[in-house]
Amino acid sequence: MHDGSGLIAVQNLTKQFGPVVAVQNLSFTVSPGSVTGFLGPNGAGKTTTLRMLLGLVRPTGGTATINGRPFHQLGQPGRVVGAVLEAQGFHPARSARDHLRVYAAAIGVPDAQADQVIGLVGLGSAADRKVGGFSLGMKQRLALATALLGDPQVLVLDEPANGLDPEGIAWLRTFLQSYARMGRTVLISSHLLAEVEQTVDQVVIISRGQTMFYGPLEQLRQSQQKRVLVQPSDINALATALRAEGVQAIEQLPDGRLAVSGVDSRRVADSALKAGVSIYGIQEEQVDLERLFFQLTSGQYAGYAPAPAPFKQQGGWA
């Protein structure tokens, strides 16, 4: 049986759909006790990876294990891992409660558990309504309730914020963090870093089916050097003064400012004062994770900027 470690391990995972390589030699691990974000643009292979982890898609190569075992060797998988996946269906004529009771039976937990999870996700008042009439957000909550039926040690969620209103997203964030704090494993995918930035502690960033970064979010933040943006009265004088002090990472921005990396704003101001240069404006640039994320994942579907209009509009409507 499985080792109960709560560890997700993906090793050299590869999947080809015909000529299309969806996932290529992907490796990462996810540990219990924290929320891990699984990030990448749409089409990067996130869903395929999660489905391979959950035994729904057969890998072309490599392994994906939960608690040291592939999904099919977990014995009672519903009690080890719960999953909310995109395109996970419901029978429209079945009530939410009946839906949960079906899978409570399959997992082997009492029916009372179905009523408990439906209350937990805030669907108590809609329990006896047919799922066909549910909004996307309600279906998402019901999918989460289904995932929680077996009180699993590992929770895997594919784009769970889809369809949730801001209140629902805030609730989900708190819920997942407290779930992880109980020593469980939470893996949550998203194509937007900003969406999960406040939820996750660890990130796995993939692009074109390959791992681009994997580690603590804090480490990702620190990997981006701070920059000071300064607008001096004399660009050349300030640049020369900074270089004389050993600061080499100086860049002139198109708007006429200097971008100085590796120092703080006080040091730049002091140099300017010594060099007799006035400063009209100075700011420390905040670490923009979204931009970093974009740099890590860009290029998959690079589009072109729209071409300038070939001719001027003549006359118009006047």
Binding site: L74, G75, Q76, L85, A87, F90, Y103
Partner: peptide, 14 residues
């Protein structure tokens, strides 16, 4: 057809 097969396979040993 209704994609409920996903949950069915997720909750069965095989």
């Amino acid at each position: 057809n209704r994609r409920t097969i996903t949950t069915t396979f997720l909750t069965a040993p095989s």
